[in-house]
């Protein structure tokens, strides 16, 4: 996507290092994402891609380096963490919808208790978002009654209901049956068109080619190569990148 006007730097990771015990899982990660940019992160499993985006909303804690989101530094400061979590929405591989609440309640819960919106307003917004992701009729159903693709779309709507500036996607389609992947990707594409800043970890290469502004390849905790989709898929530079792409394309 080339005609977009990108904004200022909204995510900045500077020399970020993380260890799980003795295991060095993120090594000297330097990354800057602009507003309205769509960045796709690819790489073999265990390369630290999920860990990286989970560090951004403090689901994981980094030991070294700085992470700044929308001008707020990620530290042990409660206020900062809450603020950053309000700015970022996350979509998980396993959807993680709340099974004991209806779709409507899933989407309105955080709105009412974190953003303190009155119930009516929250429900209107929820309905709006459900229309946007294409399933307004499922509002009163329970997650268990929906298909995987529908659940993930509800998850996206739930994250969007908080009006985040950034959307983080952790392998959103990896747990879906093939025929449902498209519906979720379509929603994500539409999101990108409307100008949402997105950081997406995925294996869907077509999505990367069509939608991404930049593609990042990570391996063994390190960012190996960053480039435009054209650059990436036609002319990768690093040997590792070449090896990886040869295995999956």
């Amino acid at each position: 996507m080339s005609d977009k006007k990108l904004g200022e730097y909204i995510i900045e990771c500077e020399d970020v290092n993380k260890w799980f015990g003795e295991f060095h899982v993120l090594k000297d990660v330097n990354l800057r994402v602009r507003e309205r940019e769509v960045v796709v992160v690819i790489g073999p499993s265990g390369s630290g891609k999920s860990t990286l985006i989970r560090c951004i909303n403090r689901l994981e804690e980094h030991q070294e380096g700085r992470i700044v989101v929308d001008g707020i530094e990620l530290s042990n400061d409660l206020r900062n963490i809450s603020a950053i979590r309000r700015e970022t929405g996350m979509v998980f591989q396993q959807f993680n919808l709340f099974p004991h609440l209806t779709v409507m309640q899933n989407i309105t819960l955080a709105q009412r208790f974190v953003r303190r919106r009155p119930r009516r307003e929250a429900e209107e917004k929820a309905l709006q978002l459900l229309k946007r992701v294409g399933i307004p009729e499922q509002a009163q159903k329970y997650p268990g009654q929906l298909s995987g693709g529908q659940q993930q779309r509800v998850a996206i709507a739930r994250a969007l209901a908080m009006d985040p500036k950034i959307m983080l996607f952790d392998e959103p389609t990896s747990a879906l049956d093939p025929e449902m992947i498209k519906e979720v990707l379509d929603v994500m594409k539409e999101l990108a068109i409307t100008g949402m800043t997105m950081l997406v970890v995925t294996h869907e290469m077509n999505f990367a080619r069509e939608v991404a502004d930049r593609v990042i390849f990570m391996d063994a905790g390190r960012i190996v190569e960053i480039g435009t989709p054209e650059h990436f898929f036609t002319d990768p530079q690093h040997d590792r990148t070449k090896l990886f792409l040869s295995q999956i394309l």
Binding site: W19, G21, H24, I223, E225, I226, H238
Partner: peptide
């Protein structure tokens, strides 16, 4: 604005022990 292109030059196998 040009999107950045970046290729790492670091040794991919290197790792450090955690601080402290």
């Amino acid at each position: 604005m040009e999107p950045e292109v970046f290729v790492t030059t670091a040794d991919l196998g290197a790792k450090r022990p955690p601080p402290n």
